[in-house]
Each structure stands twice: as structure tokens, then as C-alpha cells.
Lab assay of single mutants.
Amino acid sequence: SDGDWICPDKKCGNVNFARRTSCNRCG
């Protein structure tokens, strides 16, 4: 959805909800 972002860590790449301020997978 709008504002969702992909974790910049190449080893992670998790797609996070826009409301999250840190990655839901790797923190």
C-alpha cells in the first residue's frame, strides 16, 4: 500500500508497513 517501504538491508529486503519506523523482520 501507499507509503510502504522495503528494508534497505540487502540481506533482508522485507516490505514494511508505512507506519513502521524500523524493519519488522530485522529491526
Rank of each mutant, 00 (worst) to 15 (best):
S1W: 01
S1Y: 10
S1F: 08
D2I: 15
D2H: 09
D2N: 07
D2Y: 15
D2L: 11
G3F: 14
G3A: 10
G3K: 06
G3C: 12
G3M: 15
G3L: 12
D4R: 07
D4Q: 00
D4S: 14
W5M: 10
W5C: 01
W5F: 01
W5K: 00
W5H: 00
I6F: 07
I6G: 00
I6R: 12
C7A: 03
C7S: 03
C7K: 05
P8M: 05
P8T: 05
P8V: 00
P8A: 01
P8W: 00
D9E: 08
D9L: 04
D9W: 04
K10T: 10
K10N: 10
K10G: 10
K11E: 00
K11H: 11
K11W: 03
K11G: 08
K11M: 13
K11Q: 10
K11I: 07
C12M: 07
C12H: 03
C12N: 02
C12K: 06
C12T: 04
C12R: 02
C12Y: 01
C12V: 05
G13Y: 01
G13C: 09
N14D: 07
N14Q: 07
N14P: 01
N14Y: 15
N14V: 06
V15W: 08
V15A: 09
V15P: 07
V15I: 07
N16E: 04
N16T: 04
N16I: 03
N16V: 03
N16G: 03
N16F: 03
F17Y: 15
F17S: 14
F17V: 12
F17E: 14
F17M: 15
A18G: 11
A18P: 06
A18H: 12
A18T: 08
A18F: 06
A18I: 06
R19Q: 11
R19A: 12
R19S: 09
R19K: 13
R19D: 12
R20G: 12
R20A: 14
T21L: 11
S22C: 14
S22A: 13
S22H: 01
S22V: 10
C23V: 02
C23G: 03
C23D: 06
C23W: 00
C23E: 07
N24P: 09
N24D: 12
N24I: 10
N24L: 13
R25E: 12
R25H: 04
R25W: 09
R25M: 11
R25S: 10
R25P: 03
C26H: 02
C26R: 01
C26G: 03
C26K: 01
C26Q: 03
C26P: 01
G27V: 04
G27P: 03
